[in-house]
């Protein structure tokens, strides 16, 4: 396979993760303590722009077949819970481990790389016992919100944009707002 395309996408991904500060332990952890909401702002902006861009290109028939992840409620939820526990404890997710390693963090590069590989192996060993059952619990397949709700995609996107912008406005302008902790620079 020609690796230029994934290398280029990865370069942009890693560059942006670093510029947003996602390679830092404190930035990741503090979103879960509501003391620094950088992660939430970064995630929400990516999500809102991504859904708009994807829908725009697909209505112009300019897309490859878009890879839609499977929805299986119990697995998505259980995995999400465990993921959040690990993320809040150690201060990263798989993508930001690669980004942190790029800025010279040896704990990410060595211990993180080994841990991610061990976790992937553990999942491989658990797969035959676990996933045939778990993946069928509430499995809707590769669906989207518009297809499940039988409404126009643009309507769903408009609603999510409205909720997203309200949330970001509340973060920036609400009386409860808190800045990033000054000492962590």
């Amino acid at each position: 396979m020609m690796p230029l395309a994934p290398l280029a996408v990865g370069l942009a991904f890693g560059f942006l993760l670093h510029k947003a500060g996602m390679g830092r332990y404190d930035v990741i952890v503090n979103v879960f303590r509501f003391s620094d909401l950088t992660v939430l702002k970064f995630l929400m902006s990516a999500l809102l722009v991504g859904m708009l861009g994807l829908q725009l290109l697909s209505s112009l028939h300019l897309t490859q077949s878009v890879p839609i992840p499977q929805t299986y409620w119990l697995g998505n939820a259980l995995g999400g819970l465990l993921f959040g526990v690990g993320m809040a404890t150690a201060g990263f997710c798989p993508g930001t481990v690669a980004a942190g390693a790029g800025e010279g963090r040896l704990d990410y590069l060595v211990a993180g790389g080994a841990g991610l590989y061990a976790g992937a192996l553990a999942f491989g060993f658990a797969y035959p016992k676990l996933m045939p059952w778990l993946a069928t619990q509430g499995n809707l397949g590769s669906v989207t919100l518009p297809s499940v709700l039988h409404v126009n995609s643009w309507l769903v996107i408009a609603l999510i944009w409205e909720l997203g912008l309200l949330l970001l406005y509340a973060i920036e302008r609400g009386p409860w707002r808190r800045g990033p902790s000054k000492k962590s620079a």
């Binding site: 697995g75 998505n76 259980l78 995995g79 999400g80 819970l81 465990l82 993921f83 526990v85 690990g86 993320m87 404890t89 150690a90 201060g91 990263f92 997710c93 798989p94 481990v97 704990d107 990410y108 211990a111 993180g112 790389g113 080994a114 841990g115 991610l116 590989y117 061990a118 976790g119 992937a120 553990a122 999942f123 658990a126 797969y127 676990l130 996933m131 778990l134």
Partner: peptide
């Protein structure tokens, strides 16, 4: 870090 990344990768597989 090792335990955290292992848990996260396992969780990503499940999710």
């Amino acid at each position: 870090v090792f335990l955290g990344t292992a848990l996260i990768e396992l969780a990503a597989g499940i999710a």
